[in-house]
Computed example of a mutant assay.
Amino acid sequence: MIPLSVLDLAPISSGGTAGQALRNTIDLAVRAEGHGYRRYWLAEHHFAPGVAGSAPAVLIGLVAAATSRIRVGSGAVQLGHQTPLSVVEQFGLVDALYPGRLDLGIGRSGQRRAELATGARSGGDAAAAASPRPAARVVDGLLIPEPFDWSALAAHPDLAYQASLLQQPGASTPDFAEQIDEVRAFLDGTHRAHAVPGEGAEVELWILGSSGGQSARVAGERGLPFAANYHVSPSSVLEAVESYRKAFQPSKVLAEPYVIVSADVVVAEDAATAAELAKPYGLWVRSIRSGRGAIPYPTPEEADAHVWTEADRALVKDRIDTRFVGDAATVVERLRSLQRVTAADELLVTTITHAHADRVRSYELLASAWEREEAEGRHVKGQQ
């Protein structure tokens, strides 16, 4: 079986509050557990008026308290903003109460933010921007779009300022590989200092990445499970999983590579309803990629009122084109393509709609259709 898991950003809908968003997250986690999803991961976002998930460890504790079986974790803690000790202590504290259920997903997105800010000032992204850009292509039914050009966001005047707020003045972030090794040492009890709680915690360590760069290589070289972000960076998902598998070395954690791949999904009773629910997504992505931070998630009517320019459309095209929207059968078929092309061992589904009930229903319909197809597959296999 290929398990399904959930990635939740704790989105704030237009007209809503952070409190409502957090209560919706807890409600959705309880329902996801009932529908058989394997994991419930919480993202970390900052400077986003439309996202309440700024402190994943805190929210993970609340979700773990409200559920009983589903694994709960981060997708991902931005290690560039915290020390390995603080991260291990936070997750160790929650694990002390809910042992054996936590996934510590770590990303270097905090470091990437600082690199973009530095590049904007020094022109360090100029060479990358001038490199030939691969054309969009379809691989066995899966769209691999043209890469998104980050140069405009890197030049945003707020980027360096925001990066400065996420660290103490004068602080510098160590190399990502060194930080991962320090996290492992604290968890294993091999560090010179002792993290209590944290040392010996039954925490599953994951690394998340959007490209074939350092995150994928570090995950592979240390024999850790890896999560590739098709929903954030669909153009580089194949590069990411290939780099991870190429670098993989067996460890006491894994004998073979283990990959989870994310996808943005909206499922409804029929294609027309799903398309209506999905309308606000482009406007929401536009707010992120224009440097404003995620706005409160609009209604379909608010999305209809936006006048789109060609520049707007180019800004969000890769994300719109790679979102899986439709009835359950259609979305399951597209997710199967994603799983087949990436050889993913598990899929991580993220769904955002303005109304919480529509988001709940999307996950319910998907879980039911996925389980039905899995059962049919087992039946056919048993007859062979």
Results as ranks from 00 to 15, higher is better:
90 Q>A: 15
266 V>H: 07
139 V>K: 05
379 H>I: 13
119 G>N: 11
128 A>G: 10
306 H>R: 12
315 L>A: 15
365 L>K: 07
120 A>F: 09
379 H>L: 15
54 S>D: 08
96 A>T: 10
115 E>D: 13
253 V>A: 13
129 A>Q: 12
78 Q>S: 12
118 T>H: 14
358 D>N: 14
207 I>K: 06
314 A>I: 07
100 G>T: 11
180 I>F: 10
324 F>R: 13
99 P>Q: 03
42 L>M: 11
23 R>V: 03
315 L>I: 06
135 A>T: 13
6 V>R: 02
340 R>E: 12
296 P>C: 03
17 T>R: 02
59 L>E: 11
94 V>G: 00
171 A>G: 04
70 I>T: 11
136 A>L: 04
79 L>W: 08
83 T>D: 04
214 Q>L: 12
214 Q>A: 13
335 L>V: 03
3 P>E: 09
127 A>Y: 10
47 F>R: 09
127 A>P: 06
223 G>Q: 08
279 K>Y: 05
254 L>N: 00
75 G>S: 14
307 V>M: 01
333 E>W: 02
138 V>Q: 05
275 A>C: 00
376 E>R: 14
352 I>E: 04
103 D>Q: 03
374 E>H: 12
53 G>V: 03
36 G>A: 04
248 F>Y: 07
195 A>G: 06
322 T>M: 01
180 I>Y: 10
316 V>Y: 03
129 A>P: 01
40 Y>F: 15
64 A>M: 06
38 R>L: 12
278 A>H: 14
80 G>H: 09
328 A>F: 02
44 E>Y: 04
85 L>V: 08
174 P>C: 02
158 D>L: 15
177 A>L: 03
319 R>D: 11
52 A>L: 07
85 L>T: 09
2 I>Y: 00
70 I>N: 04
352 I>Q: 10
265 V>A: 08
319 R>W: 14
362 S>E: 09
179 Q>F: 01
244 Y>F: 06
99 P>A: 01
350 T>F: 00
153 L>P: 01
167 Q>P: 02
5 S>K: 06
336 R>G: 12
136 A>P: 11
293 G>T: 05
33 E>I: 03
314 A>C: 04
281 Y>K: 12
43 A>I: 01
1 M>R: 11
319 R>C: 01
233 S>I: 03
321 D>Q: 14
184 R>T: 07
365 L>M: 07
268 A>T: 05
29 A>L: 00
10 A>V: 12
86 S>A: 15
142 L>S: 03
300 P>N: 05
242 E>T: 15
72 V>H: 06
84 P>Q: 07
22 L>H: 02
58 V>K: 07
126 A>N: 10
84 P>R: 08
193 A>L: 13
298 P>A: 05
47 F>D: 04
4 L>I: 09
1 M>V: 12
186 F>H: 12
335 L>T: 03
202 E>A: 15
328 A>P: 07
16 G>T: 07
337 S>D: 14
44 E>I: 09
155 A>D: 13
143 L>H: 05
328 A>C: 05
136 A>K: 03
105 G>F: 08
277 L>N: 02
34 G>D: 04
150 W>M: 12
93 L>Y: 11
315 L>E: 15
97 L>Y: 14
92 G>W: 06
